[in-house]
Structure formats: structure tokens, C-alpha cells
Design a binder for these strands. Structure first.
Lengths: 233, 233
DNA sequence: TCAAAAGTGTTGACTCTACACCCATGC
DNA sequence: GCATGGGTGTAGAGTCAACACTTTTGA
């Protein structure tokens, strides 16, 4: 068995972001064949001495200059269709990351380390066009996973900043579950879960930093204790 | 990139079974190095012209003579630790299957096609010892996934036969979620979900076929209409 | 001043949990 | 006849969904 031909192994990562209103995904414009010029998920080939997790983080840094930690990415699954890569046998292990709001604005256009990626940019998840390879399928699976994890894992919440308004939280939920949620019921439920605490408005810092946010309104943050209790609610 | 060394790619499959009382997992005794003589999940190396799904099904057939369909297995994820295989770089794409009760008894001891596996046998999931490679970890992840899918996917139900008693269904649930469930509440909930219909006891066929089942009791089956409505309950 | 978004409670339906005894069967 | 497992109902608590108007703010 050992001498048999092997498929190449790559990783791809679906990086989700949130601008306060819409759920976004970070894509790169490919700088080489195949699919040169097309938009694709950041990713690349795995090296012998690294895990798939490490590979994702490395490629993310190379192509988008984002530096994430292992606990910030979650595996979605392996994509192994025989012809998913034109002319070559490549399987891909897909990941997703819910990017902390603070890092959202750090993505700049331009070339990021090498010519794999010409540039990186954010797209509304609802308006993503045809991507390279099977990346549309991967994106769908990642969104599905993000939705599944919404009620059991805290990581989706990092899409918000350190503090946020109730309507931002509301928009985020609606964007992820893909349907409208009653505003009153939503805030009632959130508040009664004791995960949030109100942030005094004199912390204008945040308000100012967060530039083009919605009009105004009370701001919240996740309470310290909630870190663990967010496990299951 | 194309000339770079590549890890070997394998698949492993956690096959769950149910004997009416306990949740079981199908293991094989390895017939070759490494880990010769140890118990392991059935699996093997992926070929260039097949998907990981197909690879799992093929290996399952070769090592345990089980013939499953693609829709009967679900991917758990890729395991890519650098030293998960001694001396060689192998990543594994793991699957799980919830085996239909009818097929549960078909597993016989003995050699099954080739010397990869000396024999195959069922083990109580709670009593599995130390397995080859990182297969204990894979098993845990698969159990986790099975649990997650219990309330959203119908496939766990195939662990039961075409017909079953309420207490078998109850035992299966307890085995999967890993905690006790109130008997009365459980059957009430099940019955009110309209997924089940009672099977007339004159269908003694089933009762007889199902040999060493519990004492007796009403038998149920899933109603035809429930096939789709089982999606979300 | 007008338009857009923020903030706020109540009710009814439903769902979940906790809890105990009698009956039939097989040994 | 005894032990094991099968079968069944109710009450209370909690949770969820539906529903509209007033206030503030920014243009």
C-alpha cells in the first residue's frame, strides 16, 4: 500500500466576518492557474510536517495576513470528489473561522505574501458568485455548520466586537439562521439568559472606534461568567 | 507545489450497532503491522480514482463484508496529527454508520478478504479498550456526532429493526445520549410526535425472527409519512 | 417635521419535568 | 410467589410565539 499514488492534500478556510449588518465571507482572487483571476477561499497545500489545522492558519496568514489561533478555526470536513480539481487529484480539508470584529477591518486589498492570492476582500455571503473549485459547496457547508454551532458554541459571538448593540446581535442572528426573528422576543430571551451585561455609555471609546455603527442605543458585552455558561443555552 | 511530498490518505469507519440493549461498535483485529493483533476501526488507504466515501464503503466490505450505501455513512472529519501513524505520514478521514438492525447479525468472525483484518466483532462502546492509532479519539468524535444527529437526522433510527418495542427505542436513546431518560415522558413524547405506528402483534414473524428480544410488549415501526417529518423534531 | 430605528409587556399555547403504582410474564 | 419489566396520567413550571405603540434620533 505504501507505494501507491497519493492524492495531494490541501486545506481551505471559510472566514466569516460581520459588519454590524451583514454576514461576510473573506475571499481571495487567485493569482495562478487553475482558475486564475477567480475568487476562491483562502487555502493551500498541506506540508508533511504540519497538521491540517496548522496548514489552514499558515495559508490564511500567507494569503490574507490574518493570524489566527487553532481554537479560532473549526474543521468542517473533507471534500474528496475525484474531479474537484481540474486535471489533478486534490482533496481538501475545509475549515471555518468566525472572525473577531476587531480583526474584521484589518483586511486590506493588495498582494499578501506570494502570488497565490492577488488580493483579499469581503463579500456578503448572500451575494457570492461562482467560486473556484468546489468552494461554493464548501461555503454552504460552512454556513450550515456555523448555524448548527450558534446555539452550542460561543465562537459565533466573536463576530461581534467587545461591545455591541442589541440590534447588531439581532442582525447577526438573523443573518446566520437565515430568517427573521421577533425583535422583542429576541432581546427578552438574550437578556434573560444572563450572558450579557450592559456597558455604560460613557465608554464612548468603543462607540467612537466603531465608527459607522447603527444610530446608537444601549451597548452590551458578554459578561465574564458567561464565558463557560454559554456552552448550552 | 505539485511535486511536494504528500501524506497518504486513509479512511476509517465507526460502525454502530444495537443489540436491543447496548450500543455496539464494530472493530477488526489487525492482521498486519503496525499494531498487528490490536483492535482497530475498519478502514484503509484511499485510491486515486475514488472518493473518501467510496473508499470507506470498499474497505468496510473488504474487512467486514458489510455492504453499505453512501447514504448510510456520514463523514465525521479528518484526523491529521503528524504522528498519528508510527513512522509514516497518514491522515485519516473518519466516517460513521448507524447500522440497520437487520444487518447487525450478519457479522461473523473470521477472515474477510485479505489479511488486513483477521476478524471482526462487536464491542460495547462503553467497554472498548485501547485501539490502534488514534482510533479511540475517532470513536469518541463519532459518538459525539451520533448524539448530535439524534434529534435532527433519521439515520440513528436505522439502528433499530423494522419494528421494535418502546423499551428498545428507550434503551437506544439512553445509550446514545449517555444518560437516563424518564420512561413515561419518553414514550409520551415519542407517541405524540406521530412518527410511530403500532404494529399488530399477529405479525409474529418479526417477533420470532428477532429471536432473543426482550420479554414482549407492543411493537412499533416508523410510519411511512414520518420519513420526511423526522427531519426536525 | 419626518423617517428610521430603539425600546418595551402581556397573554395563551405549548412543552417539559417530576413523580408512583398496578399488571402480566417468566422463572 | 416472586422478581423483572411493561404500561400508563397528572399537575406545575417554564418556555415560546404572537402581537403594536411610543420615544428618540438623525436627516
Amino acid at each position: 500500500m505504501y507505494g501507491y499514488p497519493r492524492p495531494a492534500v490541501a486545506t481551505d478556510c471559510v472566514v466569516f466576518g460581520f459588519d454590524g449588518k451583514n454576514l461576510k465571507v473573506l475571499l481571495i482572487e487567485r493569482g495562478r492557474e487553475p482558475y486564475i483571476g477567480k475568487w476562491a477561499l483562502p487555502g493551500g497545500f498541506m506540508r508533511m510536517e504540519e497538521t491540517a489545522d496548522a496548514c489552514t492558519l499558515r495559508e490564511l496568514k500567507e494569503e490574507t495576513s490574518l493570524e489566527l489561533k487553532e481554537r479560532e478555526v473549526e474543521q468542517v470536513g473533507a471534500f474528496t470528489a475525484v474531479r474537484r480539481h481540474p486535471g489533478k487529484r486534490v482533496i481538501s480539508i475545509a475549515y471555518y473561522a468566525a472572525l473577531a470584529r476587531e480583526k474584521y477591518n484589518m483586511i486590506k486589498d493588495g498582494v499578501h505574501g506570494g502570488d497565490d492570492a492577488v488580493r483579499a476582500d469581503w463579500f456578503n455571503v448572500k451575494e457570492v458568485g461562482e467560486l473556484a473549485f468546489d468552494h461554493n459547496e464548501i461555503l454552504l457547508c460552512a454556513m450550515e455548520r456555523l448555524k448548527e454551532n450558534l446555539h452550542t458554541k460561543p465562537d459565533s459571538f466573536s463576530l461581534l466586537g467587545d461591545s455591541f448593540t442589541m440590534s447588531e446581535l439581532h442582525s447577526l442572528y438573523e443573518a446566520i439562521v437565515g430568517k427573521e426573528l421577533d425583535k422583542r422576543n429576541f432581546s427578552k430571551k438574550m437578556l434573560s439568559a444572563h450572558l450579557l451585561e450592559e456597558v455604560e455609555v460613557n465608554e464612548v471609546v468603543e462607540r467612537t472606534v466603531a465608527a459607522k455603527r447603527g444610530p446608537k442605543g444601549k451597548m452590551y458585552k458578554f459578561s465574564k461568567e458567561s464565558e463557560e455558561s454559554r456552552e448550552n443555552w
